[in-house]
Amino acid sequence: MSTEKRAAVLGSPITHSLSPVLHRTAYAELGLTHWSYDRYEIDEARLPGFLDGLDASWAGLSLTMPLKRAVIPLLDEVTATAASVEAVNTVVFTDDGRRVGDNTDIPGMIAALRERGVEKVDHAAVLGAGATASSALAALAHLSTGPVTAYVRSEARAEEMRGWGERLGVRVLTAGWERAAEGLRAPLVVATTPAGATDALAAEVPDRPGTLFDVLYDPWPTALAAAWSARGGAVVGGLDLLVHQAVLQVERMTGRSPAPMEAMRAAGERALAAG
């Protein structure tokens, strides 16, 4: 008889997470009928107690904000990828009970771009300096052979991005947000900002745009992504990132590869369309 295996996504807020849809679809496609995947509203204060209460049936966890950094002191091991950006979005429990933290956002971002034919660029632009921006820089360390310009709203954010660049081996230039339209001419533009933040830039999309990676997925398309597509540019969206990083999570947690990416993507699209 198969032993029950459990996994879940933790965060706050967590209600609208698509992770259960993606992971459950993968389990169904892989025939893992004894696996379950749930969501739990957990903040930093409740995280240590939640982890300590897990039994041997647990295989892994997906983490979203605000837990990606808070979990690190509670782990037995952190991969080099996760350590490079001080962010863990995946915890795998080993057979001997150890907690191993990983980051699938970075390889997921690289895979999503490569799926659209972006292998190398000679420079890139990052819009914003939030939590996703450091992961974007880590991905760009593999993709950009030249500098990355970050367009940010404050000198403190600019200093932070330059610091991440030094740590990740990326030459980061910074400019004020008021100059963000200039960045749209880069061959690869990564928008890491919250919903609505780039709407005013939609009118500034160049005639022959390169590739836009907009990390949002709801609402979709963003005004910038819609304008980009209308001009003939390639667009990679937040759902692409979500699916690719979830594929890697499923493979790490279950030990089964490859995960059913297209079925997971289709399930995510259906869930978004259903609202």
Rank of each mutant, 00 (worst) to 15 (best):
E182C: 01
P209M: 08
R162G: 05
R167F: 03
D199A: 14
G196H: 11
V172Y: 10
E160I: 00
A191M: 03
E166M: 02
A180Q: 06
S154I: 03
V152F: 01
A197H: 07
F213D: 14
L168R: 03
E159R: 07
R157C: 02
H142A: 11
F213T: 13
P147G: 06
G183S: 10
R167N: 02
V172L: 11
V170S: 09
A191N: 15
G183P: 04
T198Y: 05
R162M: 07
D207Y: 00
A180N: 05
G183A: 09
A202D: 14
T193G: 04
V148F: 07
L188P: 08
Y151D: 14
G183C: 10
L188Q: 12
R179I: 06
P209I: 08
V205N: 14
V170N: 12
G183L: 09
V148S: 10
G163W: 01
R208G: 12
E204M: 09
A195W: 12
A191D: 15
A191I: 06
G165C: 08
T193K: 01
G169T: 07
V189Q: 11
A202I: 05
V215I: 15
A197L: 06
R162N: 01
A200G: 13
V190S: 06
W164Q: 13
T211R: 12
S154V: 00
R208N: 12
H142R: 14
D214Q: 10
G196A: 10
T145W: 00
R157W: 00
R162H: 05
G165A: 08
A202N: 12
E160F: 02
L173R: 14
M161T: 10
A203P: 02
P209V: 04
P147D: 14
G196N: 09
A141S: 15
G165E: 09
A180R: 13
T174I: 04
A186N: 08
V189F: 01
G196Y: 08
G176K: 02
A150D: 13
E178N: 14
T211K: 12
S154K: 01
D199V: 14
V215Y: 00
